[in-house]
Computed example of a mutant assay.
Amino acid sequence: MDNRTNLDDYLAGLGISDADESELPPPAPDALTGTPTLEAAAEDPRSTLEAFLRGLLGRIDPDLQVNVTQADDALEAEITGENAAKLAGRDGRTLGAIEVLAYTVLAKQEGRGNLRVRVDIGGYRKRQAEALSKLAERLAVQVAKSGEPHELQPMPASERRVIHIALKEHPDVMSESIGEGNARRLIIKPRHG
């Protein structure tokens, strides 16, 4: 069993380390116009996140682009390019892993564990949110008609949040999260009174 617990150890295990920086592909043309390196970006979380993602994407597919914006409660990164949709992975698993790595790097580099990070690749999250909103509406009609609650399969907090928001103002039903950890799921039930 692998006992590595440090992000640097994981990256080294993947063949990525500080010593590898000289082997990185050349920066994308827009990076030459002033996009800071990870070390130079240390004072600004947005620049740190952008520098990390550019470095990661340079190893995966140099034709991918990243745009990082500051939202009210999080940093949001949009990865685009011809092959971006493939990078999301099956059921968004690769996207989720990139998001966890980006958050970890930001927390380590910036000491900002309180700042949320949201990454979208090729519009995957947007399409997923639209599909979940449609599902929420269909289930709301079903629950309102039958008067019986409907329990969904366990899902990540970000997906539960989309459904909660979609049903927040619904006159006939309400949503509630139940369970713990990976088993946390959402239940849609009739709104009483």
Results as ranks from 00 to 15, higher is better:
residue 59 R to Y: 03
residue 35 T to N: 06
residue 56 L to Y: 10
residue 41 A to Q: 04
residue 65 Q to H: 12
residue 48 T to Q: 13
residue 73 D to W: 05
residue 101 L to W: 08
residue 57 L to R: 03
residue 31 A to L: 09
residue 28 A to G: 02
residue 98 I to P: 00
residue 18 D to A: 15
residue 99 E to L: 04
residue 63 D to T: 15
residue 65 Q to S: 13
residue 62 P to Y: 04
residue 57 L to V: 01
residue 36 P to Q: 12
residue 88 A to D: 05
residue 94 T to S: 13
residue 18 D to R: 15
residue 21 E to R: 15
residue 72 D to G: 10
residue 27 P to H: 08
residue 85 A to Q: 11
residue 91 D to R: 15
residue 33 T to P: 00
residue 84 A to H: 04
residue 76 E to I: 10
residue 84 A to I: 09
residue 71 A to D: 14
residue 85 A to H: 06
residue 54 R to A: 03
residue 100 V to Q: 14
residue 41 A to H: 03
residue 97 A to Y: 07
residue 101 L to T: 04
residue 19 A to K: 12
residue 82 E to G: 01
residue 29 P to C: 10
residue 54 R to I: 05
residue 102 A to D: 01
residue 53 L to W: 02
residue 86 K to G: 08
residue 64 L to C: 03
residue 41 A to L: 06
residue 77 A to N: 08
residue 23 E to C: 02
residue 89 G to S: 10
residue 91 D to L: 13
residue 93 R to E: 15
residue 80 T to C: 04
residue 43 E to K: 13
residue 80 T to N: 13
residue 52 F to A: 09
residue 77 A to P: 00
residue 56 L to P: 00
residue 51 A to G: 11
residue 33 T to W: 08
residue 65 Q to E: 14
residue 20 D to R: 13
residue 50 E to G: 01
residue 93 R to P: 00
residue 69 T to P: 01
residue 93 R to M: 14
residue 23 E to S: 11
residue 13 G to V: 07
residue 37 T to F: 03
residue 18 D to F: 06
residue 73 D to G: 06
residue 61 D to Q: 07
residue 102 A to T: 00
residue 76 E to S: 05
residue 60 I to L: 15
residue 74 A to M: 09
residue 61 D to S: 07
residue 79 I to M: 04
residue 88 A to L: 07
residue 67 N to D: 15
residue 31 A to S: 15
residue 48 T to F: 00
residue 34 G to E: 11
residue 95 L to S: 00
residue 13 G to F: 11
residue 98 I to K: 09
residue 55 G to N: 11
residue 35 T to I: 08
residue 38 L to C: 01
residue 69 T to Y: 01
residue 77 A to L: 06
residue 41 A to D: 03
residue 69 T to L: 08
residue 12 A to P: 02
residue 69 T to E: 15
residue 38 L to T: 02
residue 76 E to M: 09
residue 69 T to V: 14
residue 85 A to K: 12
residue 81 G to D: 08
residue 36 P to Y: 12
residue 59 R to W: 05
residue 50 E to M: 04
residue 20 D to W: 08
residue 77 A to G: 05
residue 15 G to D: 10
residue 66 V to Y: 05
residue 18 D to Y: 04
